[in-house]
Nucleic acid binder design. Structure first.
Length: 619
RNA sequence: GCACCCGUAGCUCAGCUGGAUAGAGCGCUGCCCUCCGAAGGCAGAGGCCAGGGGUUCGAAUCCCUUCGGGUGCGCCA
C-alpha cells in the first residue's frame, strides 16, 4: 500500500500546523456512507446498523460516547454465513465494557424489525450475520438498469477537488512503454475518482526548464544541419533518435539557412522553444493513441522569472525551514567528484525525510526541486483538497521531500499521495522483447499500441497493482482465452449482447424501460441471485478502489463478474431453466434479460473507468 | 550504510484499510459438447501467507527484527 501522505512529525516551528490530519487517517472524505448516494447497499445497511446502535444507546443498552467509526458491514467470505456481516459487537465490546454476544443479541433484535432484514444471527466470536430479502437484490437490478452506466457512481457536489499529475515525461522524445503504464494508470485513476464523485483535474507538468531541453535544442540543431545536406554531429550526450529529423526539416522551413553559421548562443533559445513545442505535439499525439487527454499542461519554464519560485522558498524560509549548509556525503557509494559545498537546503527532515534537500545549487541556480516546490504550491493555491502525483518507481527517492514540501506549504491541510509505477517487462511468446523501430533504444508507446491495440493495452496494464512489475506479452494479451482477462470480460459482454438480440428476436421487449418494469420475482434461482449480489458489490468496489487510489481493483472485479456470468451461462447447458432465453415464456425471459442487462451495465461502467470500449461481438 | 517498494499454491498474481475454513488463472488429476457463442464449464489435489517476536477478542493485513529481491541516495530531471 502507499505510504502515508502526511509527515510523521509536524514542524516544531509552526504551531499552526494542524494535527487535524490525524496520523494514519488517509481517507478523510466520506462517501458511500450517505444513504443511497452510490446505491451501495452495503453502505445502506451500515446506516441501518449505526441507527440501531444509536437507538440502543438512547435506550440505555449501550454507554454514550462510543466511536462507531470502526463498525463495518461487509460481505462474508463464506456465502453460507449470509449476505452481510457486521463486526459491530466485537468492535464495541471493549469500549462499552460489555460482552460481544450481548451487544450482538440486542443489535440483532433491533435489526430484525427492519423489513429489509430477514434474519440476523449471532455467530462466531460476535459476528452478526444478516440476510436480506431477495427483493433487495432485485431492487439492485432495477437500480442498475435505471441508472445505466452511471450505476455505482456518485453525483457531483459531495466529493473533493483532486489534482492528478501524471506522465510528466520530459519533452525530449516520444513516450515509451514505462510512460504508457503511467499514462494509463493516471487516466484510469482520474476516471475512477471522477466516477466516485470528485472534481478531477488531469495535469501534466512539462519539465522544460532544465539542461535536458538544451540538449534537445542542440540535437535538433544537428538535424537542422542535416536537413541542409550537412553531416549531423550527434556526439555523445545528444539525443540520437530519428524522431528529431522532422524537427530539423521544420527548422529549415522556418529559418532557411540563416542559423547555420551562427554561434549557439544566437540560436539556442529559438530552437529550444520550437523543439519543445514539437515534442509536446508528439507527446500529445502519443497520449491520444491510448485515449489520454490532459486538462492542464503546466510548464516548469514558465515559473522562472515570475518570482513564484522565490516566493515559495521564502515562505518555507519564514517557517524556519530553509538554511545554508553543507550536506554529509552519502553513505556507501561515494560519488567520484564529491566535495563538501554549501547549498541552500530545505529542512525536509522536519517532515520525516531522511536528509535535508538542496533547493539551490552551489553555483546559485535552482535545483529541479525548487520549481517543483513552487509548482506544488501553485496546485495547493488553486484550491485542491488533495494532490496525487504519479511517478516512475525510479523516482521513489523523491517522494518524501515532495510530501514534506506540500505539508509545509499547506500547513498539513492538503495530502499528497504519490503512486509509484513499477516497470513493464515486454515479452513476445515468452521471450524478452526488444525493439527499436523508431527511437533507437526503447520501445515506444506507439509501438505497443500499434501491436496490441488501445483497449488491450489499457486493460492489461491495469491488471496489476501499480507498485508491482508488469509482464506484457504481445502474444498473450491478444490471446482469446480464459486466462486473458481482457478477452474474458469482453466475451461476457458479447455474449450478453448476443442473448439480448435473441430475446428480441423471440419478441421480448429488451429496452431498458421494459426491462426495468419486468417481473423480477421470476428470478429466484440461487445462482441467479448470486449474480445479482455480485452486481450489488459494484458500487462498493468503486468506493473502495477510489479511496485506495487503486484502479486495478476495477479490473479484477470485472473479471470476477464476467466469470460469474460465464458460469451461470454454462449451467444453462445442464439445466434448461437456467438458460437466459426461455422459449415460450416471455415474462421469465424478460426477467432474465434484466439480470444480464444489469451485468452489461456494470461492465460498461467498469470498462468506462478503465478507458476501454466494450465489445459487442468477438471476431 | 540508509530510505522506499516487494516476498501469498509448482508458475503469474488477487486478497475488500484488522474479521470467520486465505482466493483466481496457468500447470496437474477426473468429469462435461444432438443444448442461448464449449475460443468454455464443473470437481479435486496443491499453503508454516519468507523466518522470528509483538499489539488484541481476532493479523497475510498494523509495529519491531532477521533474511532474500528491486529501486533510489548533493550541485540530473
Amino acid at each position: 500500500m502507499a505510504p502515508l501522505p502526511h509527515p510523521a512529525r509536524t514542524p516544531p516551528a509552526s504551531r499552526a500546523a494542524r494535527p487535524a490530519v490525524a496520523a494514519g487517517r488517509r481517507i478523510r472524505y466520506r462517501i458511500g456512507n450517505r444513504r443511497g448516494l452510490m446505491m451501495n447497499i452495503f453502505a445502506d445497511i451500515r446506516v441501518l446498523v449505526i441507527d440501531a446502535l444509536n437507538a440502543m444507546t438512547d435506550a440505555g443498552a449501550l454507554p454514550r460516547g462510543l466511536d462507531l467509526a470502526a463498525v463495518a458491514v461487509e460481505p462474508p467470505r463464506d456465502p453460507a454465513h449470509g449476505d452481510m456481516a457486521t463486526n459491530a459487537a466485537m468492535v464495541l465490546a471493549k469500549p462499552a465494557g460489555m460482552k460481544p454476544r450481548d451487544i450482538a443479541q440486542g443489535l440483532a433484535e433491533r435489526l430484525s424489525a427492519d423489513p429489509r432484514i430477514t434474519s440476523a444471527e449471532v455467530a462466531g466470536p460476535g459476528f452478526l450475520n444478516l440476510r436480506l430479502g431477495t427483493g433487495q437484490w432485485r431492487g439492485v437490478l432495477r437500480a442498475a438498469i435505471a441508472a445505466g452506466p452511471a450505476f455505482g457512481s456518485v453525483p457531483k457536489g459531495h466529493g473533493e477537488r483532486i489534482n492528478v499529475e501524471f506522465v510528466s515525461a520530459n519533452p525530449t522524445g516520444p513516450m515509451h512503454v514505462g510512460h504508457t503504464r503511467g499514462a494509463v494508470f493516471g487516466d484510469a485513476l482520474a476516471n475512477l475518482l471522477d466516477f466516485a464523485g470528485h472534481e478531477v483535474t488531469r495535469e501534466y507538468y512539462v519539465n522544460d526548464g532544465g539542461a535536458q531541453v538544451d540538449v534537445l535544442a542542440r540535437s535538433a540543431f544537428e538535424r537542422y544541419r542535416e536537413a541542409h545536406g550537412l553531416e549531423p554531429q550527434i556526439s555523445e550526450g545528444l539525443y540520437p533518435g530519428d524522431y528529431l529529423i522532422p524537427v530539423g526539416e521544420a527548422l529549415k522551413a522556418r529559418f532557411g539557412d540563416s542559423l547555420l553559421d551562427l554561434p549557439e548562443a544566437d540560436w539556442l533559445d529559438r530552437i529550444r522553444d520550437i523543439a519543445i513545442a514539437e515534442m509536446m505535439d508528439m507527446i500529445r499525439a502519443d497520449l491520444e493513441l491510448v485515449g489520454v487527454r490532459m486538462d492542464v499542461y503546466s510548464s516548469e519554464r514558465a515559473l522562472y522569472g515570475t518570482g513564484r519560485i522565490e516566493a515559495a522558498i521564502a515562505r518555507l524560509d519564514q517557517a524556519g525551514l530553509i538554511y545554508e549548509g553543507v550536506l554529509e556525503p552519502p553513505k556507501g557509494k561515494l560519488p567520484d567528484d564529491w566535495e563538501p559545498r554549501e547549498q541552500t537546503l530545505f529542512r525536509s527532515t522536519s517532515y520525516g525525510d531522511d536528509v535535508d534537500r538542496p533547493v539551490r545549487k552551489s553555483d546559485g541556480r535552482w535545483t529541479y526541486f525548487a520549481p517543483d516546490i513552487a509548482y506544488h504550491w501553485e496546485k495547493i493555491d488553486r484550491g485542491f483538497d488533495q494532490l496525487i502525483d504519479i511517478f516512475g518507481a525510479d523516482h521513489g527517492g523523491y517522494v518524501k521531500r515532495m510530501q514534506a514540501a506540500v505539508a509545509a506549504l499547506s500547513n498539513g491541510r492538503v495530502p499528497l499521495d504519490v503512486k509509484l509505477i513499477q516497470l513493464v517487462r515486454l515479452f513476445k511468446n515468452g521471450e524478452p522483447f526488444k525493439m527499436s523501430k523508431r527511437a533507437g533504444t526503447f520501445v515506444t508507446l506507439r509501438d505497443v499500441v500499434e501491436q496490441a491495440g488501445r483497449d488491450v493495452t489499457r486493460f492489461h496494464m491495469l491488471t496489476r497493482k501499480n507498485d508491482a512489475a508488469l509482464d506484457f506479452d504481445f502474444a498473450k494479451v491478444l490471446e482469446q482465452s480464459k486466462d486473458n482477462p481482457v478477452w474474458y470480460v469482453q466475451y461476457a459482454n458479447a455474449r450478453i449482447n448476443s442473448v439480448l438480440a435473441r430475446a428480441a428476436e423471440a419478441g421480448v421487449d429488451t429496452s431498458d424501460a421494459a426491462l426495468a418494469g419486468a417481473d423480477l420475482d421470476l428470478i429466484e434461482h440461487p445462482a441467479e441471485l448470486a449474480l445479482a449480489r455480485r452486481i450489488a458489490e459494484w458500487p462498493r468496489t468503486v468506493d473502495i478502489a477510489a479511496r485506495a487510489h487503486e484502479p486495478h481493483r476495477i479490473a479484477f472485479y470485472l473479471y470476477d463478474l464476467a466469470s460469474d456470468l460465464h458460469a451461470l451461462w454454462n449451467r444453462g447447458n445442464d439445466d434448461q431453466t437456467l438458460r437466459f432465453v426461455q422459449d415460450g415464456d416471455p415474462a421469465t425471459t424478460a426477467a432474465k434479460m434484466a439480470l444480464v442487462r444489469s451485468v452489461a451495465v456494470v461492465i460498461a461502467a467498469g470498462l468506462g473507468i478503465l478507458g476501454v470500449t466494450p465489445a459487442k461481438e468477438m471476431r
